[in-house]
Write a protein that binds this DNA or RNA. Structure first.
Length: 226
DNA sequence: GCCAACGTTGGC
DNA sequence: GCCAACGTTGGC
């Protein structure tokens, strides 16, 4: 799976993105819609808690600090997203099936938290929305890309990406440590973050959130850091 | 830099 | 299909 990892931006005009989960930016967003496959059992249980069977809220991880992957910087922070044309980038580099299937389940207009991972201060930085539904991730066919997948065929691409657009920064950065504190309290006494995927589906770079989780996290914006 | 958790690969 | 070896993720 993919994670998005990081990517760097870099050269002009190109995309960058990251590793599994990370994104890059894209230049021209592509087109081909992806077919959503049957969710794995694991995903199914993650989705189930979302009430309907399909989540409407998401969390997407990206690395805001430079890190080389096969010689390519996978850094991609929310500031990098803001700097893209139309503040829009393709989320390429996801190479994990579960995360890919979540990408394929995303619908136009849905919102996602932009999470900074593998950095000094991990946590949620801002809000983005899906502006293009899943289509083939072009980086799987690029030999020089850190996420090149020689086993993927052009007539049956394995990996997908979506395009996301910056919506806004959170009023304050919500650190992972604070989310974890709430998760632990909620686990013990009941509460919205009780089953949050960030703590129960570790290492997934694209994950679903229930409306309750999403709303609770947004409510933290107004509060003092705990 | 360390290392735990988890995923993938590949021999058998 | 099992499982050991290895690779990756990602917090600390």
């Amino acid at each position: 799976m993919p994670r998005l990892r990081k990517r760097l931006n870099g050269t002009a005009g190109q995309d960058k993105k990251g590793p599994a989960g990370k994104r890059t930016k894209t230049k021209n967003p592509g087109e081909a819609p992806a077919t959503v496959e049957r969710p794995s059992p694991r995903e199914t249980s993650a989705l189930k808690k979302c009430g309907d069977n399909v989540s409407s809220y998401w969390l997407m991880k990206s690395e805001p600090e430079s890190r080389l992957e096969k010689g390519v910087d996978v850094k991609f922070s929310i500031e990098d997203l803001k700097a893209e044309p139309k503040q829009t980038a393709c989320w390429d580099g996801v190479r994990n099936y579960q995360a890919r299937n979540f990408l394929r389940a995303m619908k136009l207009g849905q919102e996602a938290f932009f999470y900074h991972s593998n950095c000094k201060e991990p946590g949620i930085a801002g809000l983005v929305k899906i502006v293009k539904e899943a289509y083939p991730d072009h980086t799987q066919f690029e030999k020089s890309n850190p996420h090149y997948d020689p086993s993927s065929k052009k007539d049956n691409p394995k990996w997908s990406m979506v395009d996301v657009q910056f919506v806004r920064m959170l009023k304050r950065f919500i650190p992972l440590a604070e989310l974890r504190t709430h998760h632990q309290v909620h686990k013990a006494s009941g509460g919205p973050l009780q089953h949050m995927a960030l703590f129960t589906l570790q290492r997934l770079s694209v994950q679903p959130l229930t409306r309750e989780e999403f709303d609770f996290i947004l409510s933290l914006e107004e509060k003092e850091p705990s």
